[in-house]
Design a protein around this nucleic acid. Structure first.
Length: 436
DNA sequence: ACTCCACAGGAAAATTGGGGTA
DNA sequence: TACCCCAATTTTCCTGTGGAGT
């Protein structure tokens, strides 16, 4: 028997392309999204009648199908209207400055390689002018889709969006429409009313899928991917239930199913049961952590490393100052420049956003007000991932200290005599109380 | 009531670094 | 080559703050 046969494409399980289960796949049909699709189509169809469609704002949590639905609809629009329409799709998570968005748009509209704008260097108004010129230069309608538009707004208070709305004004006979996609329902709150009203001409809410919606979606996507009776009914239900727990996240549910299938294939199993789904979930979570750590910028890695080794010394909650001290020690040992505490403070917040740390600010009266921090996950695993970075692999950790500040913190006689265990419990209670 | 710790986190200045033009 | 423009990143400087100690 050939060694590779069990890894080859012709598996006992597969009947089609696993890619159908991936998040970026745009299927040919969207169960439980018919009304939303119809709504978008109705708005955009005014192009067919030669008038400009309203701007659209699409709300919905992650994995509710906002992006792929929009891609699907705009693709259909392009096919139906042909040369008349040009759709530009920009992900604001990647391009979050006015500069970056404008260049991306201009380059989307470019014909050849020679009229591309370099990724840096041009003054903003020149790019802006170029964009207007290109839009006006060619006829037809333009639909600008801004995915993850909230990124844009939180970054610099709507400047970028304002610039884009100006593009719409300045394009002659107003043939440009905007579609904004966001998962934050309140993004428009802080904006100027005139921007708000123009962005909000039409808004569409993508409500979270419930478990039975998800079941339909998973079944639908599985069709043609796996052979009949390979996936147990209960496994689909479990997958749907897990996805529903995460605010109705179809992407996650599909990811779980895809990983389950991969696991089953690799292990040579014939069916996919609840067991495979649970395994997939465990692997998924591990991969997420690993990936998150691996892609961290160097300085963030050092800060995280500092947190990890500080916590290794004792499981007490850490405070910002301790982590910063040890961070400086690590920088010293490895010969890196160390950042200011102000910056490290922000990095700690970023790490918290990633879910790698948990932090709660609390005041200890006379002994200051600071964040109580702990590492969310297995220390040794974190450390292993961190040390895989060539820049950190030499780390020894000889100078790491755990200042016994908490002895000062609990300066009164009773608490000074607490054992480590008791102190830890006390601090944990503090933290838990604040973690909802 | 007042002090004062040990920071949080906002605002603005300064630095860095790509890319341009004279 | 020198110098300017621009955006992003960091530093500097700053004000704010909850509550134990006094």
């Amino acid at each position: 028997m050939n060694l590779f046969s069990k890894y080859s494409g012709s598996s006992d399980l597969l009947a089609g392309d696993l890619g159908r289960l991936s998040g970026s796949y745009v299927p040919e049909s969207f169960p439980h999204r018919e009304t939303e699709i119809d709504h978008i189509v109705r708005i955009l169809s005014s192009i067919m009648r030669d008038s400009r469609p309203s701007n659209i704002l699409i709300y919905g949590k992650t994995g509710t199908g906002k992006t792929s639905t929009t891609q699907y609809v705009t693709k259909m629009l392009s096919e139906a209207a042909g040369e008349k329409v040009r759709v530009c799709f920009v992900n604001c998570q990647v391009h979050d400055s006015p500069y970056s968005i404008l260049t991306t748009l201009v380059n989307e509209l470019s014909e050849g390689k020679d009229d591309l704008i370099p990724p840096m260097g041009w003054p903003l108004d020149r790019i802006y002018g170029e964009l207007i010129a290109r839009i006006n230069g060619k006829g037809g309608y333009y639909v600008l889709v801004l995915d993850e538009i909230d990124r844009l707004l939180q970054k610099n208070g709507g400047d970028s969006l304002y610039v884009l709305l100006k593009v719409i004004d300045d394009s002659t006979s107003s043939r440009t429409s905007l579609i904004g996609i966001t998962n934050d329902a309140n993004i428009l709150d802080g904006l100027e009313p005139r921007i708000r009203s123009r962005m909000n001409q039409e808004s569409i809410l993508f409500s979270p899928y419930n478990a039975s919606d998800l079941r339909d979606i998973i079944s639908f996507r599985l069709k043609g991917v796996v052979k009949a009776n390979v996936v147990e009914e209960s496994a689909i239900n479990l997958c749907a239930a897990l996805g529903a727990q995460e605010h109705g996240d179809a992407r996650k549910a599909l990811d779980l199913m895809r990983i389950s299938v991969e696991i089953a294939m690799r292990e040579g199993r014939k069916t996919i049961t609840d067991k495979e789904i649970y395994e997939a979930r465990d692997r998924f979570e591990m991969d997420v952590v690993k990936e998150a750590i691996k892609t961290l910028p160097l300085q963030s890695k050092i800060v995280l490393l500092s947190a990890v080794v500080t916590q290794e010394l004792s499981s007490k909650l850490m405070i910002t100052g301790e982590i910063y001290e040890n961070y400086r020690n690590i920088c010293n040992e490895l010969g890196f420049m160390s950042l200011t505490s102000r910056r490290v403070s922000d990095i700690l917040s970023e790490l918290e956003d990633f879910g790698l740390l948990s932090a709660t600010t609390r005041s200890m009266g006379r002994y200051g007000r600071t964040r109580f921090i702990k590492v969310m996950g297995q220390l040794d695993l974190f450390k292993k991932h961190l040390l895989e970075d060539d820049n950190l692999s030499m780390f020894q950790g000889s100078r790491i200290v755990r200042q016994s500040r908490f002895e000062n913190v609990f300066g009164n006689k009773e608490e000074r005599n607490l054992t480590d265990r008791e102190l830890e419990n006390k601090l944990s209670n503090f933290a838990d109380a604040d973690l909802q």
